[in-house]
Structures are given as C-alpha cells and as structure tokens.
Design a protein around this nucleic acid. Structure first.
Lengths: 207, 207
DNA sequence: CTAGAACATGAGCACTGCTCACGTTAGTGG
DNA sequence: CCACTAACGTGAGCAGTGCTCATGTTCTAG
C-alpha cells in the first residue's frame, strides 16, 4: 500500500540484481521507442514489451509515463555533465570561447550517438522539474554548468553569471534542436551559428 | 464519405453562419482549456463541452486534437503578424534595434492579454508544419518577419538574412517562454536579456 | 528455518481520441 | 411555394491508452 503517487517521479529504486537489470532495460527500451515513434506516440505497454518486462513491473519503478521519461532524461544529463566535466578538466580552456566549444561539441557528439537523446535530451517539453524538485530542467543544468564555468574562466560567480548561463543554455538548447531538425547529423552551419550567438552574447555580457 | 484523414489539419471550413460561430467558439474554448490545464491534459470532450458543441461537430472541422490546437496557433500567428506589421509600418524604425523592440514588445503584450497564447503561441512543441505544409512553424514565422525586416532596415534580403532571422526568432521564442515561466507577467530582466541577445547577435551578424 | 521485505504478474477499470450511421436544417432553381 | 441537394448536427460506442491491485513468488537478515 501507500505507493508514491507524486506524478513524474521514481517509486522505488531497484535494490536486487535482477530488478536493476530490468530497470536499465526499461530505460533503454524507452530511448529506443522514443527514437522510433516520438514523444507523443510512446506507449508504456510498448516499452514494457520491448524490455520484456510485464507492465506491472514498469509501474513498480516509475510513478507514471512521465516518470519513466524523466528518469531517462536524468540518466542523459548525468552522462552529459560527466563528459563535459572530464573534458573541461583535461583541456582546461582559459576563456568563454573554449567552454562554449566543449559544451556544444559534447552535446553534438551525444546527439549523434545516444539513442533517443534528441527527443528528451535533459527533459521533454512541458514536463519540468524532473531533475531537481522545484527547478525546471535547464535551470538545474545551468546551475551545474555555472560552477564549472566560474572555476575555469575566473569570472566572478554572482547573480549576473547565473543569468548569463541560464540564458545562454536556453538558446543553445533550441538552436541545437533546430540544427538537428534541419539535418539528422546536425546542420554544420546552424551549429556554428549557435556558437556565434553564445560568443556574441557572453562576451558582450561578461567581458 | 472520404473525409480528410491527414493528421493535424482542418477538415472543412464552416460556410454557414451558425457553424462559423461554433468554429470560433471551439477555438476560444480550446484556448481557455489550454490555459487552465495545459497542453497534455487538454481533452477534446472538455473543449466540446465548454463550447457547447457535440463532439461529432468538433471532428467535422478538425481532423484530430492536433488540428484543433494547430488552428488556434494559426489564428494567433495571423493576429501577431498583423499587429507587428501595423506597428512597423506606422513607426518605421530605421535599424535592427527598433525592429527587435517592436517584435518583442508585441509578443509580450499578446502573452499578457490573449488566453492560451503562452501554451501554443505559434504552434505547440512536437507538432510542427501547422502553419504551412513542409515548413516548421518558426520557419514560417521567420519567412514573414524577414520580408518586413529587409524592407525596413535596408539590409539585403539574402540567405544570410534568412539564417539570421531564423536563429534570432528561435532564441527569442525560448527566452520569452523562460521569462513567462519565471514570472506570469513576464520577468522584466529576462525580457531585457532577450533583447540583448538579439541585438548582440544581429549586429555582430549583419552589421 | 522463518518472518517479512522486495519483487512479479496480467486481467481489468476508467478514460481517451475519434467514427459513423442516421437525422435535421439551409439554401437554391423552377 | 416546393422539392432537392449539400451542408450541418448528433452521441452511442469502438479501439486503444495509462495505470492499479489482489495475489503469488523469491530473496535475505537474524
């Protein structure tokens, strides 16, 4: 009894080995189905069928359809931030331009290689607060990117930087969505244009 | 027989008076419901109930749920473009900055006054090609804004302008969405930030 | 060994988008 | 005025969805 009925969340994390496998299989199947039929047409029954998991089991882990997709988004975000952090620490670029280069390129790489990444990246539209309660997704991502940016570029980490990163991220997100809508491999001109927008704005804003 | 089964479109435009009233009532009810419960929770039955129109009648006009929402988006777009055109012709600003000012302010005004405008503005996400076949919504809007911009600022109307307007529109769209997500009246700082992004980018790009 | 926690299952409920067969009204040529 | 066609009106019901819950099975700590 007393299951977690908060929408868009996890219910129970798997603790035993078999159910952990199933949990991951469900996320993989979810990514696959998203890739094939898109967000609106995704069906929990189909995801369960692909993962070879009964429908009831799916709902043991995820409170609802949104919770399933949200968990996939969270996994994508962790993966993305891990990769960006690694590259930034290794390459240690000394200015805004270098940070823009790395964050954009890493996003592009993931969109080309991770199934379903294009549909939910860090959270599908109209479905916010997936990553942290009370924060919409891009705000959560912005918070984590801001810390990285401040420590690498020496820019003061104040309210101004917070807003600048928030705005830059929002633009980058849509422009890259546009680039990949235009060309499945990511229209190179639009990717370049994305970097240009970010560089114009951020140097105007912070420089 | 032989109804139009193309998804996301209109079926028949009303030709007689009573059905035209019902058509408009359906769009108004659709806007109201969107405003109250959001995109995902909108139900065709509820829209029909509000408009005091039987469900079958709704489906005489609209091929499906998406067609209904798309028709609302199209009505919003025409209204927006009309207002922007009027103001630009009357005020005849002489540079990019003036055009940015007018287009952004007019959007803000509409979001504050038109029910449901915030949810679909010119087309809900994941539901493109509503305004013109084979063009996603923002591209269609961009095309019409580009013509206006070129004639007013004297900038050459070439491929470069096309891309610049396309990119600027995409950014403006998300940043204004963000501004209104942050504050129901539209966060003033984020609205200002939106103009800053557009001005930095466009003067860097076209100047 | 055993109590209780974690996990597994799928028929079925409530609800959705949408159809279609049939009835009603509006408009027009004679 | 009528008769006739096209436009309009209608809502029970179908196919399919998200999700539950009663019942059973497996794991693991003491």
């Amino acid at each position: 009894m007393n299951q977690d009925r908060t929408p868009g969340t996890l219910r129970k994390l798997p603790v035993q080995k078999r159910s952990l496998e199933r949990f991951e299989r469900l996320l993989d199947a979810c990514a696959q189905v998203l890739d094939e039929v898109g967000y609106a047409a995704l069906t929990t029954k189909e995801v369960a069928r692909r993962a070879e998991v009964p429908i009831g089991t799916l709902y043991q882990f995820f409170s609802d359809r949104e919770g399933l997709i949200g968990a996939l988004a969270a996994r994508n975000l962790e993966s993305y931030l891990g990769r960006v952090t690694d590259r930034l620490e290794r390459e240690a670029p000394d200015g805004i331009i270098g940070v823009v280069e790395v964050t954009v390129d890493e996003y592009v790489t993931m969109r080309r290689s991770i199934t379903g990444f294009g549909v939910v990246d860090f959270g599908a539209v109209g479905q916010d607060h997936v990553l942290e309660p009370h924060l919409d997704n891009n705000t959560a991502v912005a918070g984590r990117l801001r810390a990285l940016t401040a420590s690498l570029t020496g820019v003061e980490d104040d309210t101004d930087l917070e807003i600048a990163v928030r705005v830059a991220l929002e633009c980058a997100d849509t422009l890259l969505q546009l680039a990949f809508r235009t060309d499945p491999q990511g229209d190179p001109q639009l990717i370049a244009e994305c970097k240009r927008v970010l560089n114009s704005y951020l140097s105007d804003r912070l420089g």
